[in-house]
Amino acid sequence: MAGSGETAVVPITKPAIAAGGAVSRGAVAPDEAGAGQVPRGVSMSGAERLSRNRFWPAVPQAVVVPLCLLLLWQFVGALDVIPAGVLPPPTRVVEGWWTWAFGNVGLGLNSYSGTWFGNLLFSSQRVLEGYALAIALAVPLGVMIGWNRLVARMVDPTIQGLRPVPITAWLPFSIAIFGIRDFGAVFLIALGAFYPIVVNSAHGARDVNRNLIRAARMMGATPRQLLFRVVFPSALPAIFTGLRLGLGVSWTAVIVSEMVAVKSGLGYVLWDAYYVGRMDIVMADMVSIGMMGFLTDRILLLIESRALAWKQRSGS
């Protein structure tokens, strides 16, 4: 067995899981052999070194395709096939974005000027609230479903029955109940993120190695100790899978609900800008949403790598 010190960190590929689908575990295991095979003293190429970083995937390779797309987009814009009002070229989007972000607020005809940061905060706050609510409900409930057969029989059918109703279908319900208010958005986010988190948590808690349970029981663990010291840590990798999926759903939900049910945030601006024909703002908004989704996922990944440090260390 190789010691942990001399082996490099291998990027861990997460198993792909549809929010509704079954979780394929075991795919998480990093390539065991690969880690030890880099001959010592042989230096790695820059790209190789970069690709070993889990948080920032190899940058040089990664930017090639987006750059080409950007150039193509600029080129199509210059050709004037599609009117710039419909598809503004990147340069115009950046210009519009600049004003949106750094322009003076409340002056002139540009109602978006200087409101980017505020709207970003509105959306982020809603995501944070809804997502936190989802975690607080779904993780304990999921673990209980996975752990306790009675809870599973009582609660799981309801969850499975409600899950096929898309969060978009809940919009009128949400507006009717909560009105055009913040909590409408928070509700939808929490609801959307709830399902993948609860399903994956339940899966993780159900799949605990039977021998670990037995080992803890023969050492005298009470049911409570079993739950907190064995079941929960065992389920944690699956729980994190659910958390990452849930975060993605949260950003979808915040945009959808802001488009309809609230009068602020990136989703609201997106739809509003479309109505008044500001496609540059629409495009800039889309990129902003993508950035936030990416950024929050990286933060979550960082937390995960801390919480599951044992998994990475043992993989090497």
Binding site: N209, N211, L212, R214, A215, R217, M218, M219, G220, V230, P233, L236, W310, K311, S314
Partner: peptide, 18 residues
Amino acid sequence: APAPDRAVVFQEPALFPW
């Protein structure tokens, strides 16, 4: 039921990986 007066050593060591 299982109790600490009967320790078990399993074939698969059943250690807590974390």
